[in-house]
Design a protein around this nucleic acid. Sequence first.
DNA 1: TTCGTAGTTGAACAGTCGTTCAACTGTTTG
DNA 2: CAAACAGTTGAACGACTGTTCAACTACGAA
Lengths: 117, 117
Amino acid sequence: MEKQPQCECEVIHADVVQAVQQQLLDQDAYIALATLFKLFGDSTRVRILHALEQHELCVCDLAALLGMTKSAISHQLKSLRLSRLVKYRRDGQNVYYSLADDHVKKIIDMGYEHISE
Amino acid sequence: MEKQPQCECEVIHADVVQAVQQQLLDQDAYIALATLFKLFGDSTRVRILHALEQHELCVCDLAALLGMTKSAISHQLKSLRLSRLVKYRRDGQNVYYSLADDHVKKIIDMGYEHISE
DNA sequence: TTCGTAGTTGAACAGTCGTTCAACTGTTTG
DNA sequence: CAAACAGTTGAACGACTGTTCAACTACGAA
């Protein structure tokens, strides 16, 4: 019986560990979860999402609202777009962004509830 | 009238921007939110939190469960402890960790719901 | 067509982050 | 006391990430 290469210690409560083991998800699921939450883990992106929660906005207005360059905002919007947290529509020269669904609002609200206690 | 140093463009929809502006929180609130979500933005920490959601666990069992060193786990538990996402109790040689409140479960569930569609 | 503005993109830089390693503390046992 | 094990800690390393900058595309107006 070999030890796991990356774990230098033995299990102490074998029964509990085995029970928990069966409840855990695939490694991939945790990576997907972490990838999602990572997007909320930057104050610029949270500000963008919270602003879009109030109203659809174009890149230029978002940049002015947050006091940042259009480039910086656009880079972040790309990340949010690729993870389907926001959607966009073009109207003439402007591109308007809005939240893709209401999960975003729920997640932010839940987080705000936690830090408010 | 000077332009903002970090924003090279003008507001396009002044009325909308002003309305959204008033709904936004302090900069500090967004930093606190991002700091919280950043903790969920790493697959190791999400795995730890999801495991603790099932049962209280000591560092050694967590390390065995996730196939990682006690040191790596302990470092992550320290971050989670400092942000009051987990609590701990010592019993002899072992230190048992568990979730601090049910916000953690709610946030993970909300995220899982989002990636499951 | 040309010009001006909105928006995007890729490279590069600095700052951040997670794991490893080694040394350490704290507790139990003999 | 010493030995053994659980857990913590700080430094260091490599990997990742957010912003800047410059160059680019897309659309509307003249």
